[in-house]
């Protein structure tokens, strides 16, 4: 599907908001940040993040899919593949 620039901006904003809520003390988060290595997320943080992303983007990730997430850009690609564009109201 083709997404508008506005939709992509909204998606980015939601992705960054989820990270901010899970890791409130971490600064300088970008879509390319490696969530574990650069932002210091542990396995519980990752579980929380995946749960929140599933809810916000109305998608379902398998354990295998969740395990391959390295950065928010990975999540974004996955969402775009699945054709979801998130809850723009956030």
């Amino acid at each position: 599907m083709i997404q508008t620039a506005t939709e992509i901006d909204e998606m980015d904003a939601i992705l960054l908001d989820v990270v901010k809520k899970v890791l409130p003390k971490v600064q300088g988060v970008t879509l390319e940040s490696r969530i574990r290595e650069d932002l210091g997320a542990d396995s519980l943080d990752m579980m929380t993040m995946v749960m929140e992303l599933e809810e916000r983007f109305e998608l379902s990730l398998t354990e295998e899919e969740a395990a391959t997430i390295v950065s928010l850009a990975d999540v974004k690609r996955k969402i775009q593949q699945m054709g979801s564009h998130g809850d723009a109201g956030v």
Binding site: K21, V22, P24, T48, M51, E52
Partner: peptide, 8 residues
């Protein structure tokens, strides 16, 4: 509680 903690 932090914003996401109630879900856990």
């Amino acid at each position: 509680l932090a914003p996401l903690e109630p879900k856990q």
